[in-house]
Write a protein that binds this DNA or RNA. Structure first.
Lengths: 154, 154
DNA sequence: TACTGATAGTCAGCATACTGAGCAATATCG
DNA sequence: CGATATTGCTCAGTATGCTGACTATCAGTA
């Protein structure tokens, strides 16, 4: 009988569980109300102004049906805007608002602090090695999820 | 501007996403319909017959409000039973059914295959090292989530 | 024993994540 | 050009995961 601790799937779930809890705690301590998913989406919109939802989903490996609700909440909080695209009437162009930019700026220290706290049990070299191994395993498994990472086109 | 790939939180989410997809694919290929969460709960019930829901949740680090629904679905599929405890009328004792045992037995190869596939991008030594580092980081962060791992009592 | 606090479980509500279906618009190709 | 395929997005439904509140019960203590 294999122990849970020998199952990478179980360890993945536990580490992700802790990562989300740490992120939310740090962000709340800084006075904001933003989930890890919302943060990643907002930061990606900022770096790629005017991108459409499918591209955004690809850049952060979200499912296209998930991104709809995430953007809904960013828009509802006044951090992002969704407008019809002129080039393609099916698509929506996403923009970050000034309020969104301000939020991103002010929240960054909390986000970075959260990333540190997640790795508190490891020394610097181990933290780097963990990230390297995760990146490698993820790269090999990218196409196995419904929402693989996709580089920006053009 | 930090890249997503330098954020352990983002990598955690991606690895977990792939792990779940791989698990579901392998289990479905074997002809079963069981989620990673349901599998872990069922296996733990089998190893600890008669345990109550809070103990089960602690052993696999689930939230106590999450475990309710998971057990509902195991019961509904005929894989587990929930009975009132005689010692404590608040508690429910959990048992695996014969059908549940049969399912666990038949599903094991698929589960093990899934664990292998998740690490396909790594060689054996790297896979071991990834698990070691995850275990270490998780141990340090255990108390930071609402659903920390708890050893069985007595 | 009566009061107080803790514990087991559930429920409502919200936020990911996914499957599968559907609509509207665009692209492609005979 | 017109039929067909593809694409961008949304929606309904299901399954985690969590917060916070609530009931029932148990445990410890004044």
């Amino acid at each position: 009988m294999k122990d849970n601790n020998d199952m990478p799937g179980h360890l993945a779930r536990r580490f992700q569980q802790i990562a989300v809890a740490v992120f939310l705690a740090e962000v709340e301590k800084a006075g904001f109300d933003l989930t890890p998913v919302q943060y990643a989406a907002l930061a990606t919109i900022k770096s790629n102004p005017g991108l459409d939802q499918v591209t955004l989903a690809g850049l952060i490996a979200y499912d296209r049906t998930t991104i709809t609700g995430v953007i809904d909440r960013l828009v509802q909080k006044g951090l992002a805007e969704r407008r019809a695209s002129s080039r393609d009437r099916r698509a929506r162009e996403l923009e970050i608002t000034d309020e969104g930019k301000r939020t991103l700026r002010k929240i960054t220290p909390a986000v970075e602090s959260a990333q540190r706290i997640m790795l508190l049990g490891l020394n610097a070299k181990e933290g780097e090695e963990l990230m390297r191994l995760l990146r490698k395993a993820i790269a090999a498994g990218n196409e196995r999820s419904r929402a693989p990472l996709r580089e920006a086109q053009e």
